[in-house]
């Protein structure tokens, strides 16, 4: 379909972008367009201005700052997949990104766009939660940091104000942790029916840290804290993993849709959590 007409602005700095957003209360940021354009074409939204971030140089790329990996919001999925620093400091991101859509989508879609879109079926929000990442936003009142746990507010809704831009994501180093993104979808190259992001740290065999976050088990990513508690402190053996995974859906409110009813998703989350943890404790 054809979107409703809109103005198009293409700033080259964050300040200009924020100003462009401030100038039109019905403006929207355009990143890779992989989620926004279908919405416009189906006329489910009709922003009056699109602020295209592609020329904002400072939003592109990955760097290491102190203990953190810093990923610019406009870094594409494909760039992340081929970035050595991501592979070293946060391999979970690379693993999950490899499951996102198809080649074309990964070449256009961005890390920041995926997080800002906050689709509960999207794979990267749960990953950001599992990693305890920090979102850095810039708006008319300057810069602020939002922990991932507070960033995803509701279905397709983040803590970003309409005139704020997500500029980068700071990710604590998890080099040496076991990790796994266990994704279940019906079709190749599609969103998750359920996904499980798992990180496990072991010291002398024992599990000292467990982080598990679930994709598409609620209106926003769900931290499976009962699983984390159950596995941490154990020897990380198969019995402990299976027992911990049995708590995966505790507190989750999975949706029902054509891909699966809530009870099926709850079941899947337990199976997939067991599989994810089995790999993550593996090393």
């Amino acid at each position: 379909m054809i979107p409703v007409g809109f103005e198009y602005s293409r700033p080259s700095t964050v300040e200009e972008a924020v100003a462009a957003l401030a100038a039109d209360p019905d403006a929207k940021v355009l990143a890779g367009g992989q989620s926004l354009l279908p919405v416009l074409r189906l006329r489910l939204a009709a922003p009056t201005t699109l602020v295209d971030l592609r020329d904002v140089e400072s939003l592109h790329g990955v760097r290491v700052a102190g203990d953190d990996l810093v990923i610019g919001a406009m870094t594409t999925h494909d760039e992340i997949l081929h970035d050595a620093r991501v592979a070293e400091h946060a391999p979970l991101i690379a693993a999950a990104t490899a499951t996102v859509g198809d080649r074309q989508v990964r070449h256009l879609g961005t890390f920041g766009g995926s997080l800002s879109h906050a689709d509960p079926a999207g794979d990267l929000p749960a990953v950001a939660c599992a990693l305890d990442a920090t979102m850095v936003a810039v708006g008319p009142n300057g810069r602020r940091e939002i922990p991932a746990a507070d960033f995803f507010v509701d279905y397709l809704t983040t803590a970003l104000a309409p005139d704020e831009i997500l500029v980068e994501v700071r990710v604590p180093d998890t080099a040496g942790w076991g990790h796994r993104y266990e994704k279940f979808n019906r079709m190749a190259q599609a969103w998750s029916i359920v996904g499980v992001a798992a990180l496990v740290r072991r010291v002398d065999g024992g599990v000292t840290d467990t982080r598990v976050a679930l994709t598409n088990m609620g209106r926003r990513p769900v931290r499976a804290t009962a699983v984390e508690r159950a596995l941490t402190g154990t020897a990380g053996d198969a019995g402990a993993v299976t027992a911990a995974a049995g708590h995966a859906d505790e507190g989750a409110e999975p949706p029902s849709d054509v891909n699966g009813a809530a009870d099926y998703r709850a079941h899947l989350s337990r199976v997939l959590t067991r599989r994810a943890l089995t790999v993550a404790v593996g090393a």
Partner: peptide
């Protein structure tokens, strides 16, 4: 394995896009 046209109780086609109708691609 994949395709079905689903209507909701009001008669709206809920599988009205390629994403929901899930025709297979070569990768499937």
């Amino acid at each position: 394995l994949h395709e079905i046209a689903v209507y909701d109780e009001d008669g709206n086609l809920t599988t009205g896009t390629m994403v929901d109708y899930t025709p297979p691609s070569a990768a499937d």
